[in-house]
Design a protein around this nucleic acid. Structure first.
Lengths: 228, 228
DNA sequence: AAAATGTTTGACCTTTTTTGACTAACTTTA
DNA sequence: TAAAGTTAGTCAAAAAAGGTCAAACATTTT
């Protein structure tokens, strides 16, 4: 955990309320008044948008030490643009918007940290936009796997990375803005060529470089090329 | 111009250097060390990324009162992730990163404004990601036209909006992550159905509602649904 | 064991991309 | 200023990619 996350962890721990939430619960809903900010201590939470015609796009999948619900700080009246769904039982610190605003104003160095974090979020979104849009659905999937690897990957042996987060094809499809059938086909294709393997929702990457090469991955900083 | 932009305008006017730049010049380049922040007084500037395989994606087209080059505030050593190209002769205020950092720390209320602005940028990117990815290339174009309308549109008579920014098909294609042929075909289609018309690079919208309906546009706030 | 949820596959259809050929408009240079 | 070169726009046909639907199978949960 780097310095910034430590500062925020301390802040939320000191001033926030600690809660636990079960799988499939919603932390907040798209369209609702935005009142609180959350710091994830354990678990996994997805941030997504749904459109009228029933499509769903997942913007982030957040794990420990992520901040969520951050769209509305210092704005009088705003509504969540996203829904936060609990993917696996999670624990989080909750802080009211007003409290966080006050705390940040009192501690300018924290405000600077928060700003840096917002900037990083921006860069993440920009690079994700590029990845999802510029190399077709295959590019979207490959980029998503690379980001999952950078965010939840555990190296298990020489060049083999285990993604320690169970995902259904549907969840991956929502990250890639495509159908689960498409994801299924592409994943099986990668398995056939020994690029990845998977079992019970857990993906293991055997040839990360192949995925990177396919989408002309320019090795952007690891704190940017993430899914959280 | 709203209050926030006025504050920044004053700040840049007071502390920045005023420069003029001709069409097709670059303000900064992808990969270069990021040293300065810019406030656009007049003109039009595109912010885009190029990939190894020659594709280009334009993230923003900025006009008067936009801030550009903002990716790296309070970070010691960072590089531009984008290239800024001058679309039409522009004038801007330049401020070194260090100066802006100092000024923001001295004036906490400005820091808050800057943060709010960063948040808005984030929401813009998120909604653009959704638009570009969720409704195919047609959705990408329609969303782009709607955003251009919200950003550069001048109402000329009942429900007719003139987009006061000349764009080539190639430039529109880069905004939509597709080819200029595709854009050409779709624009002609829209013209045939009297949704839009265009002449010498200037688009006029005759039926904005049609475009909105086609992509199930949920009328998000006007400060979010923009291209700058 | 039944129900619910998720996966796999094939067939079929639609959209998007690519390619190539041609024209118009604009720049550069001789 | 005319010729040559470059960039942009137009159009059509073929190929590739992606989406949808239905049916069968597998796996968790209840």
């Amino acid at each position: 955990m780097d310095n910034m996350q430590e500062k925020f962890h301390n802040l939320f721990q000191k001033h926030g309320i600690f809660i636990k939430v079960n799988k499939d619960n919603k932390i907040f809903l798209e369209g609702e008044r935005a009142k609180e900010i959350y710091y994830i201590k354990t678990g996994a939470i997805s941030i997504s948008q749904e459109t009228e015609n029933g499509k769903e796009l997942t913007i982030r999948i957040c794990g420990p030490d992520s901040i969520i619900g951050e769209d509305a700080l210092f704005c009088n009246l705003t509504y969540n643009s996203m829904t936060a769904k609990v993917l696996e039982r999670s624990s989080l610190y909750v802080l009211s918007r007003e409290s966080l605003e006050l705390l940040l104003v009192e501690q300018p160095d924290l405000m600077v940290e928060y700003m840096k974090w917002l900037q990083t979020e921006n860069l993440k979104h920009q690079s994700r936009l590029r990845d999802l849009v510029l190399n077709g659905k295959k590019g979207a999937l490959f980029s998503t796997i690379i980001r999952l690897s950078n965010t939840y990957g555990k190296p298990i042996e020489n060049d083999t990375i285990y993604i320690d987060l169970p995902l259904t094809n549907t969840e991956i499809a929502n990250l890639c803005a495509t159908s689960r059938e498409m994801i299924n086909r592409m994943l099986n294709d990668l398995k056939k060529h020994n690029i990845i393997s998977f079992e019970k929702g857990y993906i293991t990457i055997h040839d990360l470089q192949f995925l990177k090469d396919e989408i002309a991955c320019e090795n952007c900083p690891l704190q940017i090329c993430r899914i959280d």
